[in-house]
Design a protein around this nucleic acid. Structure first.
Length: 427
RNA sequence: GGAGGGGUGGCAGAGUGGACUAAUGCGGCGGUCUUGAAAACCGUUGGGUGGCAACGCCCCGGGGGUUCGAAUCCCUCCCCCUCCGCCA
C-alpha cells in the first residue's frame, strides 16, 4: 500500500505507474475522495473540539451547582451533527480504502517499461547446456519411466495438478529441501523458521494477496483461514504490528513450506508434469531491511538464490521483470529461469522481489531509529528455490540414455550416497 | 466442547463516568559527574491524522450503543491464559 499523502503529492508518478503496469484504476476519484474526506474531517474535528471544551465546563459547573440544562441541550445538538459528519466520513473512507488497497507499488526506475513479459530484460546467463547423444525427454516421461512420479494416482487422491512422488523421487524432493535450507542457514546467514501453513486474513492483506488474489487461494470452509500460496505470507507477517530495534536489522529468514495455489484462469496451461501444481514445496528467503539499502539487499538475495542452481549445476538466466509483468506489491523483481532441455526452454524457478515499504505499511512492520522515531522497514523475498521445478530441472538436465538420472554431487550426501536415480528402491 | 480469568504506550503495570492532558517502573534519548565507562542524579521520551503555523482531532483488542462527557457503563464479536474433557 502506498501512503495517501504520497499519492496526493506525486499523483503523476502514480498515474504513470498505473499506465506502465497496464492497470485500470480511477485515480482522480481517489484524489477527490481524499480531499472530501479531509474537509469533512476538519469540520468534524472542530465540532468535537467544541464539545470537548464545553463538556469539561459542564463538569465544573455541575460541581459548583450551576444549572447546565441549556448547555446540555446545545451539546446534544452538536453531538448529532458530529454523528451526521461521521457517517459521511465513513462512507467516503470505505470507497477511498477500496481504491487505496488496489493501488500497486511504484516500479523502481531501473525496471524496464513495457506491457508484458516480452519486455523483460535478460541480465545474465550461467552454465553450459548439457549435450545429449539422444533425444532428451521431458521430465514427466523420465519420472514415469522410473516410476518415481505418479500423476494418475495424484489425480485419484486429490484432483488434476496433484502428483504422487515415490521412492527415489520422494527422496530427491526431501534431499533438495534439506540441501537448500543448509545452504542458506550455514553459508548465507539466514535463520530457519517453520511457520503455520494456514494463515488469517490479516496476513493475506499485509503481504498483498488480498484483496486482489482472492480467487487464487484455498480457503477453509468453517474457519477464516487460508492455505498459504507461499511462505512469504506467514514469514513476512512474523513481525506484523511490531516495532523492531534498528540494530536488529537486517533480518534474514528462510523457511521450507508446502504452497497451495488454485491456478484459477490457467486451465490447459502446463497440464503435464511438475511445473504448475496446486500443491508444491518451496524454500523461501525473506528479509526485513533498512530502507536505505534494500536494493543492495535485493542483489544479494538474488545471488543467494542463484547459488542453489550453481551448486546443482543447473543452467539458468536472470531476467528483470518489466512493469507489465511485475507483481502488484513489488517495486522490482528478478526472475531466475532454469534451463529445461526436455522442453528446450527456460522456465521460472525463482522470483526475487523488493517490496520496499509497500508490505510493511500494510503490515505495520517498523523499526525505531537511534533518535527514537518509528520508520517502516523494507521487505524482500525470493524463492530459494521452488522444489518441484528443481526436480523437473534435475530430471531433464541429468537424464541418461538408459532412462536413469545422475544425482548432482552436492545432493548425494543428502541421498545416502546415491549417485544415480534408477527407480523406486530406497537402498 | 464445558467452566473461569484476562486483552491499556517499546515492555511491565495502575486506572470502575468529569484534572485520564493515561500514574509508576523498566527501556530509549539528552545532560551532570568521570581519564573513560558503570552507578547515581537531572531532564526528556507513544502512534496516527488535519493545518504554513498557532493549534486541533483520533487511538486503551474489533465493532455498535448509553451520556453534555466513556479506558471506565451496556450489547456483540475476536483473541489469549488457566482448569476439565477429547486427541496427534
Amino acid at each position: 500500500m502506498l501512503e495517501l499523502k504520497f499519492i496526493r503529492e506525486h499523483a503523476e508518478l502514480v498515474r504513470a505507474s498505473l499506465i506502465n503496469r497496464g492497470m485500470e484504476l480511477n485515480l482522480d476519484r481517489l484524489l477527490s475522495l481524499d480531499e472530501k474526506r479531509r474537509a469533512l474531517q476538519t469540520e468534524a474535528d472542530d465540532l468535537r473540539s467544541i464539545r470537548n471544551r464545553v463538556s469539561k465546563e459542564i463538569g465544573e459547573m455541575v460541581r459548583k451547582g450551576i444549572d447546565v440544562t441549556d448547555k446540555r441541550e446545545e451539546m446534544k445538538r452538536v453531538g448529532e451533527n458530529i454523528a451526521i459528519l461521521e457517517k459521511k466520513i465513513k462512507s467516503t473512507e470505505e470507497e477511498l480504502d477500496f481504491l487505496l488497497a488496489r493501488v500497486p507499488n511504484i516500479p523502481h526506475e531501473s525496471v524496464p517499461v513495457g506491457p508484458d513479459e516480452s519486455y523483460n530484460r535478460e541480465e545474465r546467463r550461467w552454465g553450459e547446456f548439457p549435450q545429449f547423444d539422444f533425444q532428451p525427454l521431458p521430465h514427466w516421461d523420465i519420472g514415469q519411466g522410473l516410476d518415481i512420479l505418479d500423476f494418475e494416482r495424484g489425480v485419484k487422491i486429490a484432483e488434476s495438478r496433484f502428483t504422487l512422488l515415490k521412492g527415489q523421487g520422494a527422496l530427491l524432493e526431501r534431499a533438495l529441501i534439506n540441501f537448500m535450507l543448509d545452504l542458506h542457514t550455514r553459508e548465507h546467514g539466514y535463520t530457519e523458521v517453520f511457520p503455520p501453513i494456514l494463515v488469517n486474513e490479516g496476513c493475506m492483506f499485509a503481504t498483498g494477496q488480498l484483496p486482489k488474489l482472492e480467487k487464487e487461494m484455498y480457503r477453509c470452509k468453517d474457519d477464516p483461514l487460508y492455505l498459504i500460496p507461499t511462505a512469504e505470507v506467514p514469514v513476512t507477517n512474523i513481525y506484523r504490528g511490531e516495532i523492531l530495534d534498528e540494530e536488529d536489522l537486517p533480518i534474514y529468514l528462510c523457511a521450507y513450506t508446502p504452497c497451495f495455489r488454485r491456478e484459477a484462469g490457467s486451465y490447459g496451461k502446463d497440464v503435464r508434469g511438475l511445473i504448475r501444481q496446486h500443491q508444491f514445496n518451496k524454500v523461501e528467503l525473506v528479509k526485513m531491511v533498512h530502507p536505505d539499502n534494500s536494493f543492495d539487499e535485493l542483489e544479494k538475495l538474488t545471488n543467494d538464490a542463484e547459488e542453489v542452481l550453481q551448486k546443482l549445476g543447473l543452467p539458468y538466466r536472470v531476467v528483470t521483470l518489466s512493469t507489465g509483468d511485475l507483481s502488484f506489491a513489488a517495486a522490482k523483481c528478478y526472475d531466475l529461469e532454469v534451463w529445461l532441455p526436455g522442453q528446450g526452454e527456460y522456465r521460472e524457478i525463482s522470483s526475487c522481489s523488493n517490496f520496499t515499504d509497500f508490505q510493511s505499511r500494510r503490515a505495520q512492520i517498523r523499526f525505531r531509529t537511534k533518535k527514537g522515531k518509528a520508520r517502516l522497514v523494507h521487505t524482500l523475498n525470493g524463492s530459494g528455490v521452488a522444489i518441484g521445478r528443481t526436480v523437473a530441472a534435475i530430471l531433464e538436465n541429468y537424464q541418461q540414455r538408459d532412462g536413469s538420472v545422475m544425482v548432482p554431487e552436492v545432493l548425494q550426501p543428502y541421498m545416502h550416497g546415491l549417485e544415480r536415480i534408477t527407480g523406486t528402491r530406497n537402498e
